[in-house]
Simulated assay, not measured.
Amino acid sequence: MSDTPIRLLIVDDHPIVRDGIRGMFTGDPRFEVLGEAGDGAQAVDLARALDPDVVLMDLRMPRMDGVTAIRELARLGVRARVLVLTTYDTDSDVLPAIEAGATGYLLKDAAREELARGVEAAARGEAVLSPSVATRLMGQVRRPADPLSGRELEILRLVAQGTTNREAAARLFISEATVKTHLLHIYAKLGVNDRAAAVAVAYQRGLLTVE
């Protein structure tokens, strides 16, 4: 690396979090914080105006979420590397962010020096992954796709339409307990923990399509 500091843009919807992240880099000659954004739309505007080397991007934000912002930065040809810095490490968060073009993915409990090393690596264009995220991605690669059964797909479609377990059971002429069992199998196959994540991953993988 040259002696020129790495120019950073911090993106998070919580001012207190932005202050904390800024504090971790302030005074370190390796880095220069150019600015802060409170949502993805502002992040895109500032990244175009300030030309940072690395954008530290939260994911769940109002107005425009992090994944959408990452896609928009890529579409606009912004040269900045995006290093996701978030609390969430579920499949429905990690995979879309990486696919959208994020260079790395770290969690907010990362130690100060781990974050600094991650930013330096991201600036060089190297992949940066927290251990739990790396393990999750390796699991996706190693685990063969376990297809959903026809019944599981039926239930997932109903869940996507907003039906309750009781309503799904009535429509399919099965018990509510059977619906719950199918949902547990769906969660396990998709690597998720709840209904919303199951629907999101199903759309992402093409198991569900917008009609």
Results as ranks from 00 to 15, higher is better:
55 V>F: 08
57 M>E: 08
57 M>F: 11
58 D>V: 06
58 D>F: 07
59 L>T: 10
60 R>W: 10
61 M>Y: 05
65 D>V: 02
66 G>N: 11
66 G>E: 04
67 V>N: 07
68 T>C: 06
69 A>H: 04
70 I>K: 02
73 L>N: 04
74 A>L: 06
76 L>N: 10
77 G>S: 04
78 V>T: 14
79 R>M: 08
79 R>D: 14
80 A>R: 10
81 R>N: 13
81 R>P: 00
83 L>R: 11
85 L>N: 11
89 D>R: 13
91 D>T: 13
94 V>T: 03
94 V>F: 02
95 L>A: 07
97 A>C: 03
99 E>S: 05
100 A>K: 13
100 A>Q: 11
102 A>R: 11
103 T>G: 05
105 Y>E: 05
107 L>W: 05
109 D>Y: 10
110 A>D: 05
113 E>P: 00
114 E>L: 06
114 E>K: 10
116 A>Q: 13
121 A>N: 04
121 A>L: 10
122 A>F: 12
123 A>Q: 09
123 A>L: 09
124 R>W: 01
125 G>W: 07
126 E>T: 09
126 E>Q: 15
128 V>M: 01
129 L>K: 01
132 S>H: 07
136 R>Q: 15
136 R>P: 05
137 L>Q: 00
140 Q>H: 14
140 Q>W: 15
140 Q>G: 07
141 V>W: 07
141 V>L: 15
